[in-house]
Nucleic acid binder design. Sequence first.
RNA 1: GGGCCGUUAGCUCAGUGGUAGAGCAUCGGACUUUUAAUCCGUUGGUCGAUGGUUCGAGUCCAUCACGGCCCA
Length: 505
Amino acid sequence: MTDETQQPPDENKLIAERREKLKALRAGGVAFPNDFVPDAFAGDLQAEFADKERWGAEALEALGRRVRVAGRMLAKRQMGKASFAQLQDVTDRIQLFLQQAALGEAAYDAFKGYDIGDIVGAEGVLTRTKTGELSVKVDALRLLTKALRPLPDKWHGLADVEQRYRQRYVDLVVTEDARRVFKLRSRVIGFIRQWLEAAPRRFMEVETPMMHAIPGGATARPFVTHHNALDIDLYLRVAPELYLKRLVVGGFDRVYEINRNFRNEGVSTRHNPEFTMLELYQAYATYNEIMDITEGMIRETAQAALGRTALTWEGRDIDVGAPFKRWPMEQAVREMNPEIGEHELRDRDALARHCARLGIHVKPGYGRGKLLTELFEATVEASLIQPTFITQYPTEVSPLARANDADPGITDRFELFIGAKEIANGFSELNDPEDQAARFLAQVAAKDSGDDEAMHFDHDYIRALEYGLPPTGGLGVGIDRLVMLLADVPSIRDVLLFPYMRPEA
RNA sequence: GGGCCGUUAGCUCAGUGGUAGAGCAUCGGACUUUUAAUCCGUUGGUCGAUGGUUCGAGUCCAUCACGGCCCA
């Protein structure tokens, strides 16, 4: 027997008492019955009978509506021969009204032994109590699952954030706001799928590999894993981009994928090693149409998931209902840094001097595009509260984007910032196989000189481009960050059911 | 990686170098319309870990672990 199979070391008196109750349940028959079938949800009942004037106690008694509800018992108030309990299911809570006379003495005595946190099934007629609370007047009650561990304090809830993340199952039971956020997340993702697939957009959802022999599609360090049978290292994907564009080569003109990416980087309030990304590709579109799609999707998702486009995030008002500003990067940097002359924007040494003046740490290998991007991040990004597309990223920092026809130093690319956070990234795809091969070579050179985030050369991807990628626009949206914005929570951990945590000691 | 803060009963938290505390929960009792029910009584501790200073450490010091916030 290994350590992993030992009893948990945190046994205590409360658990011991409940184990005794479970022992008695086992002695009495099936301790974990699975034959109770509820026929109603608390939330549906609360909604249907919300009108207290129409559905007073008399009207409900006359209606005689029998329901079977099941859920976790979160409150228990005993008053001699009558008791109240609060049942919580996935939709909402509903009160149980239990009287010894209606339930029978044996069942009522059994109920006295139930603990907060137990999962119960109840059957009875709907009523409304003196204080106006919709309730089930229970005439049959069953303990479906005995909870051995006590729940946190019903009033203060679970305040220890570490325990909230590690034991999300407890957090979800007791923290209303956690349930709100994850229900919102589900609605957001569901709506986005539906919106993308609906006419006139007609995108098709696909699944591409999570394990890559050559990591690609983003400049990021990958996780490495190993395939034993083949004895080769594989990389968890940092982005699905190159596979999705292969599908466009294959004729799937409008594809999208919502799934996990993995990046071997630090953990922070904005970064988790695995995170969820939407990527989509539309043939015969440019980054301008992709900006339109991005803007429409976010606006309509907010409307669908929240019922409004006026948001509050981190105490700031953000309106995704108004048209999103589109602002070329060079122009933004110039406006926020009047002391940088227009002619200096394309002068590597001048940009390096400005970076030094502003205390921005740069490496000798940085070209003028990378330096401009550093200046942008240091002096512009924090001010981008309202939705803003920053356009025309330098070619140097955009190895997969199409160079601008009139100005090959920049690309037909944008990033969307909302609340000073990067939410989306999109561009007209680079479909010139010879240009792409040259860009890969530049990335390989950067990797050889020590940039471990630089990309690998993907020969098959070049081969695919050589068969012909139609002119295509692409988009990536950080779903976690979008949900953070819509849910008004400050940390990515609050929108991940199980955020990454170091193993417990 | 750096700075600051935190870790005490199941939960939420006090605790100023000198007997380990409170509220809720638990357990026992009363109570047939409660909403954090109420009332009476009761139990519950490896003070994150290790080492040090001290007559004496939850408290001071060091190291480590885990977490939070900020910075890179």
